[in-house]
Design a binder for these strands. Structure first.
Lengths: 211, 211
DNA sequence: ACGGATTTCGAATGCCGTTCGAAACCCGGT
DNA sequence: ACCGGGTTTCGAACGGCATTCGAAATCCGT
């Protein structure tokens, strides 16, 4: 029934995730390679997922869920620590950008999947709407709004959302354009140490939320 | 002599640039389509540029040069206006992010070339080094450092470069992840008006350079 | 007007994702 | 125990892709 609970479907997803992590370029990911690693045939991809793109989308969605869970868990911790007072701004920002930073620096994480996936949305036309729905799914980011509003009550929802969006842009730049970041900072920051990077980001993002 | 000053080489670049602007996805750009639009054959691409990727890289470099020229011209204007005093911070930031914002909103500009090009660097393995050299070419951004340093002398080169990098991240987020920006801001900002967007960005970036 | 260098062309190659019909497999009903 | 329908796997084939390469054509200094 073209189901995804199937065993080889699972093996295909695992193989695809693994290959996406190893691959330094998207052209290294081919249906035949995925199939071989999953001990299946390329047709199995079409059969179980409809197309290779949809397989990748399914894999990316799975990775996104893990990352978002980690993010929201950190946010909850930050909120609980100070409740009923507003949470610490620095801690909220660290919850927002921290998981991405740590994943992107952890060679055993599946972060490359996400990085490849976003650039893939621009390559394929047909599935773009489906891709966008995953990428633009901002529900987990929305969860940050009310807490930031308590911290900076003089900002309205639009202001908060805008600053949130800017923070995400900074996060993307650091995780995805590493070499550019290195050159611009004259190699003066240890970009391999997540704590240092996160502290640097907080240093820059926090003032956006101050009066 | 495999030269790029050739007439059909020029026609190929123009066709490629045009197709990259029209194309909503990279898969719409094929060697055959480029060749047809340039009244040539696919082999002409390989002959004159070595490969399709290198053609795209040449086109992107050409567009980058135009954008950077505009950026540096705005910077010079901002500097000259206040010389010998330090330039106005808001004006410098507007020079940094303004051209990208305006281009990305101008349907007649070649901005899509750049947007497609960056995501292309992640698709191809072999030419990635060459691609990176173009993308990570930060010389024009470096030109902003000394002027920002005069505005914020308490920041060292690393601090300035880091903030510059963050500003570029915000710029990318706004120009490239439009739908995400829309949703996060509850459609409360007119993202089609470059002046409004630039003002919003200045509002967020300027505090990074204040004490 | 000739002849060597440059450019254009078109057929061929090998890869890609996907399709499709046939084989294999699984499993409940008899 | 065996049948039979639904489900899954397979392998061959298809069209499209970028690129290669030898032959044709064109260009241009002499």
């Amino acid at each position: 029934m073209h189901g995804r609970a199937n065993l080889t479907a699972m093996r295909l997803m695992d193989a695809c995730e693994h290959l996406l992590c190893e691959a330094e370029a998207l052209e290294d990911l081919t249906a035949r390679r995925i199939a071989i690693e999953a001990h299946a045939t390329p047709s199995a991809i079409s059969y179980h997922f409809g197309s290779q793109e949809e397989l990748v989308a399914a894999v990316a969605e799975r990775v996104y869920r893990r990352l978002n869970a980690e993010r929201l868990s950190l946010l909850r911790k930050a909120v609980d620590r100070r409740a009923p007072d507003p949470p610490d701004l620095d801690e909220v920002i660290a919850a927002l950008v921290g998981p991405s930073i740590r994943w992107s620096l952890d060679p055993t994480s599946s972060y490359p999947v996400l990085s490849h996936f976003t650039s893939m949305a621009k390559t394929h036309r047909e599935r773009a709407p489906h891709y966008r729905r995953i990428i633009d799914n901002v529900e987990h980011h929305r969860a940050f709004v009310p807490h930031l509003k308590r911290i900076a009550p003089w900002l309205d929802d639009v202001d908060i959302g805008w600053r949130l969006n800017c923070a995400l842009g900074i996060r993307s730049q650091v995780t995805r354009s590493r070499s550019r970041t290195e050159v611009l900072t004259n190699y003066g920051i240890d970009l391999d140490d997540p704590d240092i990077v996160i502290a640097r980001m907080v240093e820059v993002i926090a003032p956006m939320f101050r009066r």
